[in-house]
Amino acid sequence: MSTNDAEFVRLLEDHKKILYRVVNGYCNNPSDRQDLAQDIVVQLWKAFDRFDDRKRFSTWMYRVALNVAISFYRSESRRVKSTVPVEDYVLEIAAEEPSGGRAEENLRQLERYIEQLDGLNRALMILYLDGNQYETIAEILGITVTNVATKLSRIKQRFRREFEESQTKD
């Protein structure tokens, strides 16, 4: 393995949560998740030569991962995609015991809410929940900071309203 490849694997290992969050944010089906994870990793690896190491790896990785994920459902390639063989899964996720607590229930509700959003707003939401600054979100998405703030404010209002409605129904 060359120095460049080793560096790539190290950076990917350090940022594997981005891969997990994006894949989970855009796919419900486990086999789709593995296809998407594979597609993102291959795209990252092929584009790694163009990565400017003066910039943050996480910003670049978010851009690549989200661009691939958004295109995944829109592009015609989805119709001819091949399922990745089990031994080639790049992302292995150990089974976790559901805690079943209130926090987990709220998280499931949040995930359901994210699923309702279109590809771009879903990206915005994932970036926000992952704790990115508005400036970083704007840089990744290619929109202004003011636009990010306004869109997030609307999403928050809508979420609060839907959450309250669901609580009333329960």
Binding site: L12, S77, Y89, V90, E92
Partner: peptide
């Protein structure tokens, strides 16, 4: 997540990534 996610180092080997292709 740190505890439950693992990257498959075999799948990440250069040879496999070279063979793989994007959409």
């Amino acid at each position: 997540l740190d505890a439950i996610i693992r990257l498959n180092s075999q799948a990440l080997q250069k040879a496999k990534l070279v063979k793989a292709d994007t959409a």
